[in-house]
Design a protein around this nucleic acid. Structure first.
Lengths: 386, 386
DNA sequence: CTGAAAGCGCTAACAC
DNA sequence: GTGTTAGCGCTTTCAG
């Protein structure tokens, strides 16, 4: 047997150091070699027992399993990954775990990953594109099978180029960059994607408002530089246009996707006396802020003002009245994201030219926050400035 | 200069195969060897350049960095971890990412991990202790520097023993199991912990209710088998006892930590005509459900009924009236969890006997959901069964 | 400051 | 069925 080929190991150590460690916090973890020795078999057999991918005599197997148990053996996933098998990891990058929009998608990703016997690396960028890039790199270093990028992206040229570079690197290594809820990087870039009908949802809900008789609709929130916000605004405008309602720049009030923005801006607008009968908040969070401002100003929903949101996260049902909004299949998107990445080029190379994009639908959920504008009701004055 | 010492590389390839792979999806990732070759240095130098942990001539460094860039080199974290350095990973196990209670803690863990230049493995057990155990194992395989177990644990003997075994295994390997918001496993078990004053918070808020004049307080929700729920109920009982209020079993209605439970059970209780003037929901989610039931039954908060919760998650502020509740330093707990794990025995072995437990405080946040009971107001009838 | 070489722990041919 | 033996890609003494 060829062990001890050098003068370095195993034995108590000639000079008193070299083999320290048995004293304090950790007596060297057991390895396949230890297990093999104890069970009187080769390391190959131990490996076979663990992976159950090869016939092993029942008796042998038992001996090996006993040895593993007795030694408290735990495989080293890194060694395993190094030796060739996949790291069985999928990475997910969101801007904020606290935000239900991301949390639901993350849940889908985590569940699908777990179902596929993989672990999930999760990172939060806190909205910083630079961190996003850095995290992709980190996950690449970890050799994640897929890296899921969630949510709207900044519309920046240099940033996109950088992203494309990372996507190519990942692809070259057999991993996939998944764009979940954000636009593709272009045909040349090897990514897969899962989108939802963002523009369509916005169109539908604005149309819903118009159908109820609203013409002066305030569009509130959504960072102008974010793809998500851009698409929602686009859908909103299209609905207006289709119905022949002239666009009014004053009624477009983009801003952060935050409750604070919704509250603050709405308060200001109310004070300034801007005229409108309905509000389309770019997402439910903004709507929650707006609702609070409205409440404090004594404006009743939906009597004096209609309000709708986007995303259909839980807060939509906690608001009073319950919020009419656009539902996105958040969790499903997460699941599909990993599915599409793992089947899109791994083995079943079934005509997925590296850039497969899945598109899921959205639909509006009608609750109690919309009514016909007062002004169209016979005999009532419009709730204008005063 | 010693470049091209082997016959293997760079050139077009003498025999046409041997260097396969340049065609399909991945031309073999570049390795240190490739970089070293291209830069005309040894792999040791490349390593030194990457880790900046050793002096390297500026010129050499530049050549190496250029080579890395040109080759699109990305270190292999597994090889690195195998070679001895830590995996720079912390694991976190929660029951549900969607639940703000867990999400906030997870955020703390993620941020602290990121600040310490580590990545975060996240798993959801969906409340299944068996999965929890399995995930700990998987994270151990990944050689996570710490594994953070979040939230209440089931009070099961066999389960705890199993957990203790895992804790010892981890510890033997130099990792730490962190109990975040759950009781210690006993002195013999090498874990670290971060708790919050669960019982104290419950005591304080029940006392708050009593101080307002309430005597018949319904305790609603909280799975009897969960440590979290047990402690909250204990605090509640202690407050009652201290004030000399007799315990009434009918007023203790444990159950799931869910909105659905809060809604359903409250609806039933109202229908049955149970008498009480205030509700202490075991957490804010349950409180939200209860609030809805109350609303639908035409019971006004806090006029006809006072309501308090626990956790102080965002929904507490979305409810109308805003919910009086107990605040837990959720995110801080997450941060401390990784801090305590990473400093409790890593290098600064400053008297942390493997079992250090940090205890953070809680405090009540008074909002608008509590008032004196109608029955104590002069001249008004109690809102009893009818 | 730089190079050579010995592993880290596991898997996967390839023998027997 | 089971053993042998190369590596996987990186870090790290130990020598220059």
């Amino acid at each position: 047997m060829g062990r001890m080929s050098q003068q370095s190991s195993t034995a108590p150590g000639p000079d008193g150091h070299g083999d320290r460690q048995c004293d304090r916090s950790g007596q060297r973890r057991a390895t396949v070699v230890d297990v093999a020795q104890r069970a009187g078999v080769s390391t190959a057999t131990v490996s076979r027992v663990m992976n159950r991918n090869y016939p092993v005599a029942a008796a042998t197997r038992e001996r090996v399993e006993a040895a593993m148990r007795e030694l408290g053996y735990v495989v080293n996933a890194h060694a395993r990954a190094l030796a060739g098998t996949s790291a069985r990891t999928v990475g997910i990058i969101v801007s904020e775990l606290i935000d239900p929009f991301y949390a639901y998608i993350a849940r889908g990703v985590e569940r699908e990953a777990t179902d596929g016997d993989r672990l999930c690396l999760v990172c939060c960028t806190q909205g910083d594109p630079q961190r996003e890039l850095a995290f992709i790199e980190l996950m690449h270093e970890r050799r994640a099978d897929a890296v899921v990028l969630v949510g709207g992206s900044v519309e920046d040229r240099a940033y996109k180029a950088e992203l494309a570079r990372r996507a190519r690197e990942l692809d070259a290594g057999g991993s996939k960059l998944v764009l979940c809820g954000r636009p593709s990087l272009g045909d040349g870039v090897p990514t897969v994607g899962v989108e939802y009908d963002n523009e369509g949802g916005a169109f539908a809900i604005t149309d819903h408002l118009i159908t109820q008789g609203h013409e002066r609709i305030l569009y509130l929130g959504g960072p102008p530089g974010l793809s998500t916000a851009r698409d929602r605004l686009a859908g909103h405008r299209r609905a207006l246009e289709l119905r022949g309602i002239a666009r009014d720049r004053e009624l477009e009030q983009p801003g952060a996707f935050s409750r604070a923005f919704g509250y603050r801006r709405m308060t200001e607008l109310l004070r300034e006396g801007l005229e409108f009968t309905a509000v389309f908040a770019a997402n439910d969070i903004v709507a929650a802020g707006a609702a609070q401002a409205l409440e404090e100003a004594g404006v009743r929903i939906p009597l004096d003002m209609s309000l709708v949101g986007y995303d259909d996260i839980p807060v939509a049902q906690d608001l009073r009245p319950r919020l009419t909004t656009v539902r996105i299949p958040l969790e499903e998107m997460g699941r599909q994201a990993v599915r599409v990445a793992l089947n899109g080029g791994d083995e079943d190379d079934w005509r997925a030219p590296t850039t497969g994009t899945l598109r899921l639908g959205t639909h509006i959920v009608v609750r109690e926050s919309v009514a016909a504008p007062r002004s169209t009701l016979p005999g009532s004055a419009r709730p204008r400035r005063s």
